[in-house]
Every structure is written in structure tokens, then in C-alpha cells.
Computed example of a mutant assay.
Amino acid sequence: MIPVAANDVAFSTHSVIVHLIILSQIAMFERGSQKFSKYAIAIVVVVWFSAAICFFIALPSQSWLWLISIFNIIQVVMTLIKYFPQAFMNFLRKSTDGFSIGTILLDFSGGIFNYSQMVVQSIDQGSWVNFYGNIGKVLISLVTIFYDSILMCQHYVLYPENKKGLTSKNSEEIKQPLISASPIDQQIKGSLKSSHQSPAEL
């Protein structure tokens, strides 16, 4: 038995909707030279291909519980992968400048409250099936709290906002704009600069 509460469904639905919005923004808005890495594309292809194979394996015998367990494993693996690049980049740069810690704080709070919910439910029901019956949910929360703790430690302890650990090279890289100005932007900027010149300067 895998206990599924209404809030679990709401969480998954909310996550899908938000990620669809973010993906649509990536498709619509200017990205400059930023693009998906080959590793990310390869991981996504492998995950969807594996999920499709498992679906067709489960289809003849209707082993839906087994399929859900596989999806749970995939979700745990993806959670393990998605936090690592940010933590590794912070380590290489010795800085969290430009990194949104607010998302991590909310994520960490969600993981803690998730465990709290499971504990309260288990005490109320007199059974710990909420933990051993849904290992995927437990592992996802555990991985989330683990990585969030690392990222918070990097932000507040290892690489505080004074950025003393930044090298001059990294500082220059941070100051560089992500998107270079277009000719139209440069023309507008030049016009505004000319309009603000004093008569003596003209």
C-alpha cells in the first residue's frame, strides 16, 4: 500500500503547472547565448525512454503498482541530480552571488513540514505505513533537506555575501551582462545621453 493524501496530489499538480510555466518562459523570452547542456538533454531523453519502456512492460499484466514504484525511483534520481550543479558551481566560484536563497529556504521548509505531516499522520493512525509504504516520498524529502542544507551552508557560512572569497577574474565575470545590448538599445542609450548633455557640452 502506498498512501496518497490530497496534499500529495496538490503538490504534484502545482509542481507540473509551475514547471510548464517556466518552460514556456524559456521558450518565449530572450535567452542570449544560454542553452540546454548536452548532459541535461541526454538525462531527459534517457528518463523518458526508460519510463516508456517500463510502461509497456507493465501494460500487459497491468502491474501499475510496480510502475508507480519505478516512477518513484526515477523521481528520487532526478531529485539527486537537479541540486548538484548549483552546489558544484557555488563550490567552484566560491560564491553564491546571483543565487536565489529564498527558493531553497522554502524548499527546506517544505521538506521539514512534509516529514512533520508524515509523523503526525503515523501517530494519528497508529501505523508507520506513511514511511515504509512510500519510500520514494521519504527519500525525496531526505535528499531535498540534505542538498538544501548544503546550499544554505554555502550561502550563509562558507561563502557569505561579503564575497571575500571571489577572485578578480570571477568578479569581472559576474559583472558581465548575460545578454549583450542590441544595436537598437545602443542607439537609444546614445540618444538619451545626448539629450542630457548641457549647452556648454554641445
Rank of each mutant, 00 (worst) to 15 (best):
K193D: 03
L202C: 00
P177T: 05
I17G: 01
L20R: 03
I112D: 04
A10R: 09
L192C: 02
K175N: 11
L67S: 03
K193Q: 02
G102S: 13
Y115I: 01
Q176K: 15
F146G: 13
E172I: 06
L59P: 00
Q186D: 02
G110E: 05
L80K: 09
V4R: 09
E173Q: 11
I188Q: 04
N90H: 06
G110C: 10
A42R: 13
C54K: 08
G110T: 11
I74V: 07
A27M: 02
Y156G: 07
R31G: 00
I112N: 03
L151I: 13
N72F: 00
L59E: 03
D107E: 13
L151G: 07
I184E: 03
M1S: 13
N114M: 11
I174R: 08
V46I: 09
L139G: 11
I70F: 10
A6D: 12
L192H: 04
I135Q: 14
Q25L: 04
V129T: 15
P199H: 00
E161V: 11
I41F: 15
H19W: 07
S50Y: 02
F29P: 00
G111N: 07
M89W: 09
W64F: 03
L65I: 06
I123R: 13
S149A: 14
F56V: 06
A42T: 14
I174V: 06
F131G: 08
